[in-house]
Simulated scan of single mutants.
Amino acid sequence: MKLSEMSCGNCGTVINMSALPAATRKKLMVMGLLPRTEITVVRLAPLGDPLQVRVRGVDIALRKQIAENIEVEAL
């Protein structure tokens, strides 16, 4: 499933981010968003963009376009 398809409060594990451009993927990896890392959707904006996710205790706001390219496995 894609990260953008998860609803608020759901947890998952990042599986693949290879669909992202290299520069974007590198920035996310520096922030702690790595494969096999647990991720939680904290909240969605009223119109669905951006979404707030928690990775390793840090909250990150991601655009829906980026979240659509991150594959996760629901826990």
Score class of each variant (00 low, 15 high):
residue 43 R to Q: 03
residue 29 M to R: 06
residue 11 C to M: 09
residue 22 A to P: 05
residue 24 T to E: 12
residue 67 A to H: 03
residue 31 M to H: 06
residue 16 N to A: 10
residue 41 V to R: 00
residue 38 E to H: 02
residue 74 A to E: 08
residue 6 M to S: 04
residue 58 V to D: 12
residue 27 K to G: 09
residue 39 I to T: 06
residue 39 I to Y: 04
residue 49 D to I: 03
residue 71 E to C: 01
residue 54 R to S: 12
residue 24 T to L: 07
residue 14 V to L: 03
residue 33 L to A: 02
residue 53 V to K: 02
residue 47 L to C: 15
residue 36 R to P: 12
residue 2 K to L: 06
residue 24 T to I: 12
residue 19 A to K: 09
residue 14 V to Q: 00
residue 25 R to F: 05
residue 40 T to A: 09
residue 39 I to K: 04
residue 43 R to F: 09
residue 60 I to C: 14
residue 52 Q to I: 07
residue 43 R to V: 02
residue 9 G to R: 05
residue 22 A to K: 08
residue 27 K to N: 15
residue 61 A to H: 08
residue 61 A to M: 15
residue 37 T to P: 07
residue 71 E to H: 04
residue 32 G to C: 01
residue 23 A to N: 13
residue 60 I to S: 08
residue 68 E to D: 15
residue 46 P to A: 03
residue 21 P to W: 02
residue 19 A to V: 05
residue 12 G to H: 00
residue 13 T to G: 04
residue 57 G to A: 14
residue 74 A to Y: 08
residue 44 L to M: 12
residue 56 R to K: 13
residue 31 M to L: 10
residue 29 M to H: 05
residue 38 E to N: 03
residue 19 A to L: 10
residue 2 K to N: 08
residue 30 V to L: 14
residue 3 L to H: 00
residue 47 L to N: 15
residue 61 A to G: 10
residue 27 K to E: 13
residue 68 E to H: 14
residue 65 Q to I: 15
residue 10 N to Q: 13
residue 51 L to M: 15
residue 54 R to I: 08
residue 32 G to D: 01
residue 9 G to L: 03
residue 33 L to S: 01
residue 44 L to P: 06
residue 56 R to F: 01
residue 22 A to N: 10
residue 53 V to Q: 00
residue 13 T to N: 08
residue 1 M to H: 12
residue 7 S to I: 07
residue 14 V to R: 00
residue 3 L to K: 00
residue 38 E to D: 07
residue 34 L to A: 11
residue 55 V to T: 01
residue 34 L to Y: 08
residue 53 V to W: 01
residue 62 L to V: 09
residue 36 R to L: 12
residue 31 M to P: 00
residue 44 L to T: 10
residue 27 K to I: 12
residue 36 R to H: 15
residue 48 G to M: 09
residue 50 P to F: 07
residue 27 K to A: 13
residue 75 L to A: 08
residue 5 E to V: 10
residue 37 T to C: 14
residue 44 L to I: 07
residue 47 L to W: 10
residue 36 R to G: 11
residue 7 S to D: 13
residue 14 V to F: 00
residue 38 E to I: 03
residue 34 L to H: 11
residue 9 G to H: 06
residue 35 P to R: 14
residue 55 V to E: 10
